[in-house]
Design a protein around this nucleic acid. Structure first.
Length: 284
DNA sequence: AATACGACCAACCGCACTTTT
DNA sequence: AAAAAGTGCGGTTGGTCGTAT
């Protein structure tokens, strides 16, 4: 289509965000909810393009973002998910609700890629383990293929469509959640956050109906589709998004799967299993 | 003390897909 | 139905900081 980038407009500021800009953006989103990014620069006076606003929000200002070192569990999870999903960072991030896709991508590029290549070198130097890496890689490729086929076939089913629809509608951002979690925002903003908390709490019901940028989970890769709409409503009222609820569920399943020592044997076995068998393994 | 180098990460860019007009 | 506009995602860049020489 050849649409010129929005950031090419004259007078659009680039580079690092100032605390004042952060406050302006957070303040606006606190009031109107995330989304409708194009209106933000015009309505706030920010000299940033809509894209830049969205990025700043999703990667830095959004509530619930954990910063700092990745834990061993997170690291293992990323490694396995990367093997399964490839460089689909948004999909991987869906299983790590406290991390952004950008963070995971950066962590992969700066830490894990090197780490893995070292591991690869080491293992390929050992004669007895030669071929094991390739075998596991092949297993991962096969599993990814199966998961893709699985996900695609499930997407076509009416249940899955309903779920996807429901997920999109119910993943609305709740300002109570936002106000209750200011850890990810700079210290400068903390005082401001405390002041606005009371306000947001009194407006929880309206704020919860606002559309969201919360990323939906990758479609039923592991066949997680059990939550009822009622339960979802309840969790939202308690300040927990459906996406993060599902992510927690899938995370615990993944934990079981990833950290089970016997998993390697299971993976080897998977080389020959059918789609149905794969489905059963992941409790679809 | 100066500078070269590498690691890290926030932000930008461009493409693809989706939604709106 | 087609074009335009909006949004999301992955790759890449560039600035900053710490460490080695």
């Amino acid at each position: 289509m050849g649409r010129p980038p929005c950031c090419d407009k004259l007078g659009v500021k680039k580079g690092p965000w100032t605390p004042e800009e952060d406050i302006t953006l957070v303040s606006y989103i606190q009031e109107h909810g995330p989304g409708n990014w194009r209106t933000i620069p015009a309505n706030t006076g920010l000299k940033r393009c809509s894209k830049s606003c969205r990025l700043r929000w999703t990667n830095y200002l959004r509530p619930g973002i954990k910063r700092g070192n990745f834990t061993d569990q997170e690291e293992k999870l990323i490694i396995h998910l990367q093997a399964l999903l490839g460089n689909r960072w948004a999909a991987i991030a869906a299983y790590l609700p406290e991390r952004t896709d950008n963070d995971i991508k950066n962590y992969w590029n700066t830490h894990l890629r090197k780490k893995l290549s070292k591991t690869h070198e080491l293992s390929s130097n050992k004669s007895n383990s030669k071929g094991q890496w390739e075998r596991r890689l092949q297993t991962d490729i096969n599993m990814a293929k199966q998961a893709l086929i699985d996900a695609l076939s499930l997407e076509k089913s009416p249940t899955s469509d309903d779920h996807t629809h429901e997920l999109k509608n119910s993943s609305g951002y709740c300002s109570a959640t936002y106000a209750a979690s200011a850890e990810n925002i700079s210290k400068l903003l903390e005082g401001w956050m405390r002041n606005t908390k009371k306000h947001s709490e009194s407006n929880t019901s309206e704020a919860c109906s606002v559309s969201s940028t919360t990323k939906p989970l990758p479609e039923t890769l592991f066949g997680l589709d059990s939550e009822t709409p009622e339960a979802s409503e309840t969790s939202l009222l308690h300040g927990e998004s459906k996406a993060s609820m599902e992510a927690s569920t899938s995370f615990s399943m993944l934990e079981t799967w990833l950290f089970d020592e016997s998993v390697e044997q299971k993976q080897d076995d998977l080389l020959d299993v059918s789609l149905v068998d794969t489905c059963q393994l992941f409790s679809c």
